[in-house]
Design a protein around this nucleic acid. Structure first.
Length: 165
DNA sequence: ATAAAGGCCACCC
DNA sequence: GGGTGGCCTTTAT
């Protein structure tokens, strides 16, 4: 991946959401990861893999506060995604997709000025560390197919249905 | 340094 | 519907 920036006071925790239990990891710089894992175990493995050497302390209470802020108030807390320049540019583009709308992998490739890099765009979207707030679920295939989703297609469908209307 | 693996797409059958 | 080849980045040899 690359050298990780130091995370000051790294924390993580679990809390229920409209899409099942989520795991949120954050530091003083903001949220660095949100996942909707099948199990807490797999969530932790994912964290270890993404942030080797980082010693996250558990704080479910603050995660509950985040979930309330995100799903009850509809606010977006400050985010701190970590990735390559290519990935960051794509994750940034995702945040410009309006709620309730969808776009395609090809359109994202177009939007960042790399129309040929569609395949790589798919891979980078799959690597999105902050599910839901970086709305990778709003990206579908040009042929109308749903495409993939790291945390399960059912979850992707649920998010789209939740935002629709 | 090189290979292999992807949340894709266009084009063929 | 299915299979193939090309495309580009990232990660694992």
């Amino acid at each position: 991946m690359r050298e990780l920036p130091a995370l000051s006071e790294p924390r993580f925790g679990f809390h229920n959401t409209p899409f099942g239990e989520c795991c949120i990891a954050f530091s003083n710089d903001g949220i660095c990861a949100i996942s909707f894992p099948e199990s807490r175990e797999s969530a932790l493995l994912d964290l270890e893999h993404r942030f080797p050497q980082v010693d996250f302390k558990q704080d479910d209470r603050r995660v509950a506060a985040y979930v309330n802020q995100i799903f009850e108030k509809g606010e977006t807390p400050s985010l701190h995604p970590i990735g390559t320049d290519f990935q960051l540019s794509i994750w940034h583009a995702l945040q410009r997709i309006p709620v309730g709308k969808t776009t395609t992998y090809a359109q994202i490739a177009e939007a960042i000025g790399r129309p040929k890099a569609v395949r790589a765009v798919g891979t980078a979207i799959g690597a999105n560390p902050i599910a839901y707030l970086i709305p990778c679920h709003r990206v579908i295939r040009t042929d109308g197919g749903l495409g993939g989703f790291r945390w399960g297609l059912e979850c992707k469908k649920a998010m789209l249905a939740y935002e629709k209307k």
